[in-house]
Design a protein around this nucleic acid. Structure first.
Lengths: 92, 92
DNA sequence: TAAAAATACTCCATAGGTATTTTAT
DNA sequence: ATAAAATACCTATGGAGTATTTTTA
């Protein structure tokens, strides 16, 4: 399970559409599909199911989303907080 | 920033010793050092400094640790909660 | 001088892209 | 019929290991 996969899942869950999520993530549609597949294989559970016009979350997918959101949100906060702050320590 | 890097940082921060963290993580010492370097380069900040007997956290490193811990803990919870639960959905 | 960390290098697994096929409405 | 997802294939980057050197107390 990678942070990247969680961000992908969160985006797909929000759009209910892999193609649109791929656009938002600046990735190709197959790359998104593959990461979702890897994620679902790790937990041996379907989190989403394909429909004609996109995807929908399974019951477990919804529970997973609820657990994932705090991680993605906190990761976003970290990237904002620790990004582009001038360095007071000695140089890297 | 990857979840893997955050787990590495958390382990190093706990041990204050890269070599021992590497053992805990089942990784080589250079692999841990490299991921720390990549993480620090991303934020353009030293999070740890080398000492003779290990490492210590910078002020920013301590703040980063505080921000990272909830992510690592929640990720652990997810892996426990969603691991090895028998699948009620259709097969993958 | 003795731990521990950093560097150099090589290798392989994983992630991504393009092209195409399959699915579902 | 059409939009979307899945598959196949290839390539490239990133992450890991071993061996070695450098650092710090």
């Amino acid at each position: 399970m990678t942070l990247h996969q969680l961000r992908i899942f969160e985006s797909v869950a929000r759009h209910l559409n892999i193609t649109r999520a791929a656009k938002e993530l600046h990735m190709s549609q197959p790359a998104v599909s593959q990461q979702l597949k890897i994620l679902q294989r790790q937990f041996a559970h379907k989190l989403i199911v394909t429909t004609g016009h996109g995807v929908k979350l399974t019951e477990r997918g919804q529970a997973f989303l609820d657990a994932v959101r705090p991680i993605v949100e906190q990761a976003d906060r970290i990237e904002i907080t620790f990004r582009n702050v001038e360095c007071k320590e000695t140089s890297l």
